[in-house]
């Protein structure tokens, strides 16, 4: 079985890289894209095991990316990380099929357990 691959979509490079560090340490391979457009392009050629998606993105926002992913790959698990304290946004994400929604700042353990749970399910 090949290495589990996680796609991180976040324009905050520092945060994204911290997540890459964590995931690498925990044995997950991850790749990083900074915009919604890049994510969609990336997804045209490859399919990851899981996507970590920020909602606030330059250009195409996280909600739209989520919609596209769920349209093209309904079974691909998506973990939303959002800084938005607005309940509505998070609820919308859940409604559109997000498997987990985390509010920044989240606990590493929450993220890891969510990932493990979603990947093991497959």
């Amino acid at each position: 079985m090949s290495e589990t691959k996680i796609l991180i979509v976040d324009d905050e490079l520092e945060l994204a890289e911290s997540m890459v560090d964590l995931l690498e340490f925990e044995g997950y391979a991850s790749e990083l894209v900074g915009t919604g457009e890049d994510a969609l392009i990336w997804l045209e050629t490859k399919i990851p095991d899981l996507v970590i998606l920020d909602i606030k993105l330059p250009g195409i926002d996280g909600i739209e990316v989520l919609q596209r992913i769920k349209k093209n790959h309904p079974d691909l698990p998506v973990v939303i990380v959002s800084a938005s304290s607005q309940r509505g946004t998070r609820e919308l994400a859940r409604k559109l099929g997000a498997d987990e929604v985390l509010l920044k700042p989240f606990d590493e353990d929450f993220l890891l357990s969510a990932i493990r749970h979603l990947i093991d399910k497959e």
């Binding site: 905050e12 340490f25 800084a83 304290s85 920044k104 590493e108």
Partner: peptide, 26 residues
């Protein structure tokens, strides 16, 4: 307040993640 808190969340998350990473042994 809403905007500021929002904008505080992201760097705070980065700090937290990095601290946690270090503690975790990264």
């Amino acid at each position: 307040v809403s905007q500021a808190s929002h904008d505080l969340r992201t760097p705070l998350t980065t700090i937290k993640l990095n601290l946690d990473n270090l503690m975790r042994g990264v």
